[in-house]
Amino acid sequence: MPGPASNRIPDSPLARMHPMAKIAGVCSLGLATLVWPDFTLGLGIIVALFIAAALARVLRPFSGVMLGFGIPVTLMLLFIQGCYSPRNTRVILDLGFAQLGLEGSLYAAKIVVTLLVFLGSFYLTNKTTYMGRLVAALTQIGVPSKVGYLILASLNVVPQMQRRIAVIEQSQHARGLETGGSLISRVRAFLPLLGPVVLSSLTDSQERGMTLETRGFGIRGVRQTSYLEVVWRRSDTVVTILFTVFLVLALVLSCLSRAGLITFAIQWGGRA
């Protein structure tokens, strides 16, 4: 069954990829960035992720997330670490009220790219994977059905509860209860509508548990199967091998670099 047919995920090579291969990718890219001595590798991976996002036709939301998170956190960390890190020795910019240090700034840059690589690859995996397929893949390798239930049920129940809150919120508006005004009046308006939703959701869980039980959930001694078929194709093997090789290479190179055996073309200040 090629691609996640049923859930409005645009078809693309990334969407057709086996979910486990994608998870291997997140780990490999993230760890490689983490161990690499400076921010350059991460920067390269980020560029690659943007290309992948374009191929998977999710470039617009992807950029939104990356920039929306990346820009504020970069500024914040440049300020905190760049100006106040105890390891600062060289000043690269005098802001007047504070001095921007090189070491702190590099540290900030490293943190930012690592975060962005994890964020980006995670986001891409999430956006191009139908969760049902991921859980089917997990079931196939023998992960207990309770784990699959928790992943999928959380993803289904939570939006449903949020919709219920939204409906009540609208009806409160219609009844003239304003959500504006002072803090106390806003809290007053909101608390009574939260209670019934929370309580009815909790008591609903009892019947949902009944449903699961009568459908044979958590049965012992049987290997669970799934309706969705997730095929591991040759391309998935190739990609996973590439990811593994990439991680090993990154590990070896950074070990060598930290041990001072090789040096990279770019030398950052007082680091070596």
Partner: peptide
Amino acid sequence: PFNQLSYTAGTVAEELAFGLGNHGVSR
């Protein structure tokens, strides 16, 4: 009705198959 869904299915077909999957029925 809504308390009789497994909340694990993205489609009705998967929902119907939920019980069979738990019993290990072949695809």
